[in-house]
Design a protein around this nucleic acid. Structure first.
Length: 274
DNA sequence: TTCCTGACGC
DNA sequence: GCGTCGGGAA
């Protein structure tokens, strides 16, 4: 357990001023920042998990237009949700969102919960996303770290440190959090982090596991299989294997996997997406 | 190759 | 704690 860093009040104030000043001049006008609708904010936060802002911006509007509220998302067929999701990656998030719509309607009567504990209990929502929703939808001073915040805190409070633990980062985030307006503060913090990424590239002070190569991977095949069933519903297993033209054994394995995860259904030897 | 407003099962 | 989950862009 590393000792908590002692940060003077003066240093905190200077840090806040720096971040606020940058935000005043160069804040990003993102579509999900123009709303206070908790559902819209929840959707954006799930989309933004491990996905660049620019790419989410392209999909967000289409998704919100197609499914403007929990009821419309809940009753939408999965294949429609997945086709709008196409290109965002981590397709299981689309399934999670549908299940969230189901849960929120049933258990919370359509109102997004405002506590981190309740939010974490929803599928596809972990600590970071739950805290972000609390901050952005309800303007509450929750404490969380994501990649932009990590970069900012590392830059100002742990310079030339090779590795900084999650605990250390959270402690500093909590101390420097401007509770007068948590929502705007976190927007500002993350915008500053996005700026640092451009001005100080490859200065990463957190250990990150590198992903295996995507080309030729099973995840790539999963994407291909899902897209194929999406566009060519009602094919048998052998027809799918023929159409996809990859290792039959691997395609079969992926089909079984996708079926178990709720992407596909098989009825009478025919694969569909409900 | 690396990274991206992580979550989840084991 | 480790593996897996997408896909696009730089």
């Amino acid at each position: 357990m590393a000792g908590l860093p002692k940060i003077s009040a003066l240093r905190i104030e200077r840090f806040r001023n720096t971040v606020w000043e940058y935000y005043r001049k160069a804040r990003r006008r993102l579509p999900w920042r123009q709303t206070t609708n908790p559902y819209h904010i929840l959707v954006s936060e799930v989309m933004l998990q491990q996905t660049q802002v620019e790419r989410v911006a392209e999909k967000y509007e289409a998704f919100i237009n197609a499914f403007p509220d929990f009821p419309s998302l809940r009753r939408a067929p999965l294949h429609r949700v997945l086709s709008i999701w196409q290109g965002l990656g981590y397709n299981r998030r689309a399934i999670a969102l549908k299940r969230i719509a189901e849960e929120v309607m049933r258990r919370y009567r359509g109102t997004v919960p405002s506590s981190v504990e309740e939010l974490i209990a929803l599928p596809g929502i972990g600590k970071a996303t739950a805290s972000a929703i609390v901050a952005f939808a309800y303007n509450q001073p929750s404490v969380f770290v994501e990649t932009n915040i990590r970069r900012v805190i590392g830059h100002f409070f742990f310079p030339r440190r090779e590795h900084v633990t999650e605990q250390e980062l959270l402690a500093v985030v909590e101390k420097t959090l401007d509770r007068s307006d948590p929502r705007q503060w976190y927007y500002a913090l993350m915008d500053y982090g996005a700026m640092l990424k451009r001005t100080h590239p490859n200065r990463v002070n957190v250990h990150r596991r590198r992903q295996p190569r995507f080309e030729g991977s099973r995840r790539q095949l999963r994407g291909v299989v899902l897209r194929t069933v999406l566009h060519q519903a009602g094919l048998t297993e052998s027809a799918l294997i023929e159409h996809i033209g990859k290792e039959p054994r691997q395609v079969r394995e992926v089909l079984r996997q996708l079926k178990n995860e709720g992407f596909l259904k098989k009825r009478g030897g025919i694969y569909t997406i409900s």
